[in-house]
Amino acid sequence: MTEPTHDEAHSGSLGSRLNWLRAAVLGANDGIISTAGLVVGVAGATSDRQTLLTAGLAGLLAGSMSMAAGEYVSVSTQRDSEKAALALEKRELQEQPEAELEELTELLEERGLTRDVAREAAEQLTERDALRAHARVELGIDPDDLTNPWNAAWASFLSFTVGALLPLLAIVLPPSDWRVPVTVVSVLAALVVTGWASAGLGAADPRRAVLRNVGGGALAMVVTYAAGALLG
């Protein structure tokens, strides 16, 4: 059986990088919308710069920590599941190797190989590394590239923080009368960029993604500003 080509060998890592990039874009998008909604809502109640800065920083830290903790827990659970599946597969290979060889053959047949070719391929893969073969073909797991919860946590923390900084700076730096308009324009422009980027990474229609993104962000700012104005 031929060795994997360069493109095939790196397709998994490319997919992994695209997933992380997509997660980073979505994390930044969450940071933009949630922090913008918070600071615009507070701006509806008060024009005090210190209050706006305090609220924005609190929202940035709370949101980024929440995102990081959520990603860590989620990815840790996924990693534990992957390890458990690999441990079970290793035990089955030790206890019933013939049955596992037949299972691998059938899985390869389902992918379009003839019975004879599938059997030969299964035998060669088993001789080379049985656990790796079953992990990739049967479980869809790369034993050398298990998900890392710390990477996920840091990526979410940083992307949310970067996104949240935009509305925070936009609300505290301009003069009082310009704060809300500058923030709204800056946030909507940023949401166009993140919506377009997320659509591009997912090979989706960018116009719909941008409209959804901008519409959701605009609605969030309108609702929170109205609430702040009523309470203020």
Rank of each mutant, 00 (worst) to 15 (best):
P4C: 00
E8S: 09
G12L: 15
G15S: 09
L21M: 10
R22T: 14
D30F: 00
T35V: 08
T35F: 00
A36P: 03
A36E: 02
S47T: 08
T51V: 14
T51W: 15
A55Y: 05
A55H: 04
G59C: 08
L60S: 12
L61V: 14
L61I: 13
A62Q: 06
S64C: 10
M65F: 11
S66N: 01
G70A: 06
V75T: 07
V75I: 07
S76D: 10
T77Y: 04
Q78I: 12
S81E: 11
K83R: 15
A84S: 13
K90R: 13
R91H: 08
L93F: 02
E95H: 07
Q96F: 04
A99Q: 09
E100A: 12
E100S: 15
T105M: 02
T105R: 08
E109R: 13
V117L: 13
V117Q: 15
R119V: 06
E123Y: 08
T126D: 07
E127Q: 12
E127P: 03
A133L: 01
A133I: 02
A135W: 03
R136M: 09
E138A: 09
D145I: 00
T147L: 10
T147H: 08
W150D: 05
A153M: 00
W154V: 12
F157E: 00
F160P: 07
A164M: 01
P167V: 02
I171D: 00
V172S: 04
L173Y: 00
P175S: 13
D177H: 14
W178F: 07
V180N: 01
V184W: 00
L188Q: 10
A190C: 11
V192R: 02
V192K: 05
V193W: 09
V193I: 15
L201S: 03
A203M: 13
D205M: 13
R207V: 12
V210H: 10
L211E: 01
V214I: 07
G215M: 02
G216M: 04
L219K: 06
M221Q: 11
V223Y: 10
T224G: 02
A229N: 14
